[in-house]
Computed example of a mutant assay.
Amino acid sequence: MNNPVPFKAATLHDVARTAGVSLITASRALTNPKLVSSTTILKVQAAAQAVGYIPNLLAGGLKSRRSMLVAGLVPAISVAQFLPTVQSLTDVLSQAGYQLILGQTGYDHAHEEALINTMISRRPDGIVFTGLVHSASARERLQRVGIPVVETWDLSERPVDMLVGFSHVKVGSAIAGYFLAKGWQRVGIATGNDHRGGLRREGFLAAMGRDVPTAVVPAPSSMGLGRRALTELLEKDPGLQAIYCSSDQLAQGVLAEAQARGLRVPEDLAVCGFGNADFAADMQPSLTTVHVDGAAIGRRAAQLIIDRSHGTPIEQPIVDVGFRIIERRSTSLAHDRSC
């Protein structure tokens, strides 16, 4: 049997020869087109496509000390509330010539630190975290290597570098205040076991001034876990009036279990979620939830990375995007309104 012919990638020399131009002209046409004519650009691009040439970004990065890569770390790619952030982050970076690469931490701080080390070894031009970097050694390492870092979806007075987020404690406090304004005293919490869900629970309990029945489920949330959470909460207090859920996915499951038990929402049991998922307004009943502008978080984070990479001074390294409660049918008999 004949040995297969080894694959040989097309080079810039192949492009130049096919286009009938010098090597430097071919390089300029592909990397700095302002220096050559439009006719030459078209000729070189056609030659590159004909020979199957793919630029070696690593080689270019070694010369410019820029990789044109930005690393994004998310707890779980499947979590719907993070998708607008990832999408806008990708769009803004792409427009500036950067490529986003994603890593999944799985809500595991040890895995997060290992992933940080892997990302640092790739020398990206920036790293965007969903949440805060909790490991002291990882924080110190990131600051030492000097890679621009943006932490998101949380708030801290001492970020690793830059931050775009909001206070989860204030979210929990606002929801508790909303429940109290409705006159509900027998309330419960269905929450994931993640750090941010825990902060919202702390804020809720502080505003309530007492402990309340709580069902804690593994993150990431799901409809099935929401059904399980309501079962547990009703065992603790069959007379619950309202439940705050740490995600809309959990709330979706709570609503399904309530309907299966013949409970009317909101007459027998009011339900509030978090995240304003794309299905929240279309559920039956529509779901009261907390809206955070995830797309704005992604845009601001991307721009901070781009500005820092280009040496632009950062006037506001900590950005609080805030949040708002969107009241819908699951907690109100009135017409939908935002508050």
Rank of each mutant, 00 (worst) to 15 (best):
K8P: 04
L12C: 09
A16R: 06
G20Y: 14
V21S: 10
S27H: 04
S27R: 06
A29F: 03
I41S: 10
Q45I: 08
A80F: 10
T85L: 09
V92T: 13
Q95F: 11
G97E: 05
D108T: 06
E113Q: 15
P124L: 09
D125S: 07
G126F: 03
V128M: 07
F129I: 09
T130G: 10
S137E: 14
R139D: 13
I147K: 02
V149M: 12
V150A: 06
G165A: 01
G165W: 03
V169M: 15
G172Y: 04
G172K: 06
A181D: 14
K182R: 14
Q185V: 14
F204N: 05
A206Q: 15
V212Q: 01
T214S: 10
P220I: 02
M223F: 11
L225V: 00
L230N: 01
L234P: 03
L234S: 10
K236W: 10
K236C: 13
P238G: 09
Y244D: 07
Q249S: 11
A251I: 02
A251H: 01
C272H: 13
G275W: 00
A280D: 01
P285D: 01
V290L: 05
V292R: 04
A296K: 14
A296V: 11
G298E: 02
R300K: 15
R300P: 11
A302S: 05
A302C: 10
P317V: 14
R329P: 00
L333C: 11
D336A: 03
